[in-house]
Amino acid sequence: MIAAKPILEAQGLTKHFRTGGAVSQRVVKALQDASFQLYPGKVTALVGESGSGKSTTARLLARLYEPTAGQIIYAGRDTVEDKGRSKLLKYRSEVQMIFQDPFSSLNPVHSISYHLKRPLQIHRKAQGRQMTEKVHDLLHTVALTPPADYTPKYPHQLSGGQRQRVAIARALAVEPKVILADEPISMLDVSIRMGILNLMAKLRDEQNLAFLYVTHDLASARYFADETMVMYAGHIVESGGSEELTQDPQHPYTQLLLSAVPDPARGLRTQETEIAGEVPSLSEVGEGCPFAARCPHVMSRCREAMPPVTRLSETRWVRCYLFDEA
């Protein structure tokens, strides 16, 4: 059941990057007007292709960048006032990030024990003898047992899946409330992926964590996430319960995405309609709906302005003029 209050909320989140030297300036509109909520004990997936803005969203929530516009509201408070080291530290201890590449997110010159002790030290979660105990507990939680086997090792001595578990343990060290997972399994072998997703599901249930699961794989979003949001060229275009959204997509882009995923269970595929075009460059996006150039149902107003949010039910909404009554 949905908890009453969201723990982390984005409102109208926008991020523009300026590139180019003194002479020529270009604006990359990585994210535009994104609004959504993360609830404790729920996984929310953010699905999109490359250049959709999903990683930027995760990084904004992790406060690795500052938003160009919009608010990030944590536990009811607008975080824009949170400048200064101690406030930021508090935020970081409650909102943690897991990265895509298990090979580069761990420092190769430090042992696993060091990796896990550092966050405990920085956020003063343990001292002295307690430290080792806590480290062992963390390794138990991520099923790297016996812990004493793993603490002295270095990242290159572990497999990709094991490294990702260490990354998760590191994130858990500070007892966060929200975990932002940016494509945590795409660089892992297929047979290892489910283990990691199952671990994260367990953490969601046991520790009531809120998860943001960023991925390009709609099928894993259906499997792991409770809610799914679909992004295209910097905009969230559809949002709803994962099962509902993947079985009955409403936005033309979501439909396109679903038809493109290889699915042998669907039986022999006949030749389907040509999919035209490619994802637009984020520095050349105009005023209207970014999908207008490729949409089979495009209308003239699609090119003029971005469609507003249309609520289809309590749990579903789309941004598409096909559903806009106005």
């Binding site: 297929v190 992926r193 489910m194 283990g195 199952n198 099928a219 995923v261 699915d263 269970a265």
Partner: peptide, 21 residues
């Protein structure tokens, strides 16, 4: 291995992957 791929159609079943490396 076939039990390690989440699918978009069909029922949602729990998947386990393969332990070890």
């Amino acid at each position: 291995l076939m039990n390690s791929f989440p699918t978009l159609s069909g029922p949602r079943v729990e998947l386990f992957g393969i332990p070890g490396s």
